[in-house]
């Protein structure tokens, strides 16, 4: 099975170094969450992988060959982003047909199902679609194409809560039926927390965390209680952040906890992915 290997990618816009040194590997059949604060270069990174922008340094390979201007590699990728790349006069149905021709095959049966459940008008011109339906149209493309690596940049932009839930459920169902690699770049961390299997956190132009979501969350805890007890408990752990509420202290720690914590006088909770993200990438309101 093929892997996408990203090695030492650097990207600079004029004097602003967006990506300092990005390296990671995308394995087949996994759902990745690409998380990062505004402006850290998530979209830029996806654009570089998908041949829409060029890195100043570094290399991205698929099966050992560079993906830059490499048609064989690019036809195994699909990037769904907020930028509209479809001709204005093209209708939704025509776009599906052209995608099918360009990529060789298209899951028409699944397409029919998605069009129906999302209530998308296929006779509408793409340029006339609302923001939400434009997103739905692109998501349907992404889910029906026969590609191995699907990159979704803010995939639920403009979608209402019902359609978001529907999308996540369809994503899991198609993934279960036909496993392929999804990379989801989003700020709605809580919504994707139960979906992603692997987390890539980008901060200050580098990958700050690249690990299995379950393993990571099993090591992330919030320890709360009297200040002295908390201090005693967290000694030796990596404390990401501390909060004080009068005499009560909350410490966000990363590390394996002792198996038996029943005797301790502190409360222990598992951190959510969003809390962990905030701890790793800066304070609230930073």
């Amino acid at each position: 099975m093929s892997e996408v290997v990203v090695k030492h990618i650097q990207k600079k816009y004029r004097k602003h170094q967006v990506l300092q040194d990005i390296s990671f590997t995308l394995e087949p059949g996994k759902i990745y969450g690409l998380l990062g604060r505004n402006g850290v270069g998530k979209s830029t990174l996806l654009r570089i992988i998908n041949n829409r922008a060029f890195a100043n340094n570094g290399e991205i390979t698929l099966d050992g060959r560079s993906v830059v201007d490499n048609e064989a590699a690019q036809r195994r990728f699909y990037l769904m982003s907020d930028t509209d790349f479809y001709p204005s006069s093209m209708k939704v149905r025509q776009a599906f047909q052209w995608l099918s021709k360009f990529y060789g095959t298209f899951d028409w049966r699944y397409n029919e199902h998605l069009v129906k459940v999302f209530d998308l008008d296929v006779n509408q011109k793409i340029a006339k679609l609302s923001t939400g339906y434009l997103t739905i149209f692109k998501l349907i493309n992404a889910l029906c194409l026969p590609v191995e690596f699907i990159f979704l940049d803010e995939p639920v932009l403009g979608l209402d809560a019902n359609n978001r839930e529907l999308f996540y459920s369809e994503l899991l169902s198609t993934y279960e039926e036909r496993p392929r690699t999804f990379v989801i770049a989003t700020h709605l961390i809580e919504e994707v927390a139960n979906i992603v299997e692997h987390v890539l956190i980008v901060d200050k132009g580098v990958i700050k965390k690249d690990c299995d979501a379950t393993v990571l969350l099993n090591q992330a805890h919030v320890i709360s209680g009297p200040q002295a007890a908390v201090e005693e408990f967290v000694a030796g752990y990596q404390v990401l952040q501390r909060k004080h509420l009068g005499e009560i202290e909350m410490a966000y720690v990363l590390g394996e906890l002792p198996r038996d914590t029943r005797t301790s006088s502190v409360a222990i909770q598992q951190m959510s992915l969003q809390e962990l993200f905030i701890c790793l990438t800066g304070k609230v309101g930073d």
Partner: peptide, 16 residues
């Protein structure tokens, strides 16, 4: 303009 961007979406190499 439209064909240039559409080809990028479809993964067509810039040379072609």
């Amino acid at each position: 303009k439209e064909n240039t961007t559409f080809f990028l979406q479809m993964g067509i190499p810039r040379r072609r």
